[in-house]
Design a protein around this nucleic acid. Structure first.
Lengths: 337, 337
DNA sequence: CAAATCTATGTAAACGTTTTCAAAAAATGA
DNA sequence: TCATTTTTTGAAAACGTTTACATAGATTTG
């Protein structure tokens, strides 16, 4: 395959001139440019980005690290990320950590060897230590966190305001006349679930609603105790009349329990999920849910990364962007209209 | 940042020796290896894969081209693809064509400039000309088609047997006692939909079932005439008692129509979808559907790509792998159990 | 018209590896 | 011990760009 030297020789100009032709912006006489271009075409020349990358000390690629790609929250945000980044001329390398810190560290080591220009990451559930992440910063590789971020350190991040989402949803349930609302709570070790719970509690408190020991039921995926507890509670003397689930799947499970007990939704019990998964509109009753704006998050994370990449070296300022989510009200919680 | 030369100098060995240390497999005395390794560690040396790529003439990356990432069929297959490819030491670059041939061609041009080692692609709906695809082969870059493939040329591909899937589903409906089955047919310009229809027709024929002009209703996404036609048909003197949809969304739409008319599923009408989307189990009644084995497809496509990459140059043999799908029987079509 | 300025091109040195070939060192055999 | 074979190392040439610097030619200026 032809290289620049070949094109240069065949055209009768120097290597540098050919290079300049292919790096637009550069000054070269229109006549020569044309000569070079037609000769390149004729020789079927194609610039070698690896060589350019070596010389320039940057790869033109960015890494996107996620636990796993086949989850709506990740595939949706990556969709828009890829759009923004490829538009800007970057290649997107996807890497799945499978919720393992070691894998995460391995991936980062690999990306460093590739001389990646930046990283967008949603950290794994188990990620507590963050040395592999700070090491990126030390090497001056911009890192943007999205969806899940690190509580401690100063980092760039783009996340949904989970607190606010839960607050909105809870307020909505109260507006619908719910008196005894229960939160199906996620694993508190995960920041987003902690925030959701916090928003729930705050809304109840602000609205001066009762909140007993039964207001929070641990409802972790894969743990069935929560389901039993919910069933018992629904059959008690003062059953709940509103449910805020930590996620859509939790809401779905709750829907089944409620259905099984013959309760009417939303009349007897209103339910709101979290995540606004595709299937929310497919269900009957359709499921109200807090939309996480995945595509917005992806787009913003990508743009933040681009601006970090192009930033003059200078002291680092972590930029935390937090988007308010959007509550989608559907049949499962709409008692009034 | 330290490079090989620095490590060599600091250790008192030659550049070549350091290189050999980092390319395992190579012969180098254990003592020297250790010396080099500790010095590399001390200098915080990290191999530069771009440089290696330039020298070796290969990038260590493969491109995965899909219409868009946030569709279950793509995110699921890419999940397993990434697992296989990263395990084998390759980076996965994802590129979205957004169902545009021009974008597809652009992406391929870019991947060529990156000196990609191989490509896995699910072609865009509108892709009729394939010169951009054959050009990859001419440059000796292995290409694997998955999900959607090209009808004409000799290529490597891994796809589900759509004909067989539709055949299975139709046979199942007949087994359930359905007498008048209707196929909600997809756009016939898309190969997979053509195949599904073919399987449907073949099953009816083989089972000697009646098949009138109303047996196929064009039911393309976004075209609403199909819905009306279905509604009318369901209200006619001899309404259908079985439906095979071209996809799960089509099945969902049909479910709504049936629901609206007050028909009982599966007693009055049995329905089978295609794709086995996540939400099939969430619906009530749960939706029977043909599972496309996305993860298997992804894994097989990745493995086929690897074997093509590692193959000695020789004459090209297109390998078509076709997997039988798996029919998942659920409430929407289960009249007997 | 000479001097000064500007523009377009060329020369050559990087960038950090891998790999061929040759040489040195170590191991083996008689 | 010395010749022979084998193993380990080194020197140097790629790989295909970009870019700092130099130079030639064209244009402007007084």
């Amino acid at each position: 395959m032809a290289n620049m030297k070949d094109v240069a020789r065949a055209t009768g100009v120097s290597l540098a001139t050919v290079s300049r032709v292919f790096n637009e912006s550069e000054k070269v006489r229109p006549a020569t440019r044309k000569k070079v271009l037609t000769m390149a075409e004729k020789l079927n020349y194609r610039p070698n980005k690896i060589a350019a990358g070596l010389r320039k000390g940057k790869s033109g690629s960015v890494g996107v690290i996620i636990p796993v790609i086949d989850r709506e929250v990740f595939s949706s945000s990556i969709k828009s990320m890829e759009e923004v980044l490829s538009q800007a001329g970057y290649n997107v390398i996807i890497c799945q950590s499978h919720e393992s810190v070691e894998k995460e560290a391995q991936i980062i080591e690999n990306l460093k060897q590739l001389r990646i220009d930046g990283v967008v990451i949603s950290i794994s559930k188990e990620t507590k230590r963050i040395d592999h992440l700070t090491s990126l910063q030390q090497d001056d590789i911009p890192v943007i966190f999205f969806d899940r971020d690190v509580e401690l350190a100063k980092f760039n991040s783009v996340v949904i305001n989970n607190y606010n989402g839960a607050y909105q949803a809870t307020s909505h349930l109260i507006d619908q006349g719910c008196q005894r609302i229960v939160h199906l709570a996620g694993n508190e070790n995960v920041f987003i679930f902690k925030e959701r719970k916090r928003g729930f509690v705050a809304a109840l408190r602000d609205m001066k609603m009762e909140m007993g020991p039964q207001s929070n039921i641990p409802f972790d995926d894969g743990h069935l105790e929560g389901v039993d507890q919910l069933r018992q509670l629904l059959q008690s003397d003062s059953p709940p009349d509103g449910i805020l689930a930590n996620g859509d799947i939790a809401a779905l499970v709750a829907l089944r329990v409620v259905e099984e007990l013959g309760l009417k939704i939303p009349a007897d019990l209103a339910i709101v999920g979290f995540g606004d998964s595709n299937f929310c509109t497919y269900l009957r009753p359709s499921l109200s849910s807090v939309n996480q704006r995945n595509e917005d998050i992806g787009k913003m994370a990508a743009n933040l990364l681009l601006s970090e990449i192009n930033k003059e070296a200078g002291e680092f300022i972590g930029t935390q962007q937090m988007l308010p989510p959007v509550l989608k009200i559907r049949d499962s919680s709409n008692r009034l209209g």
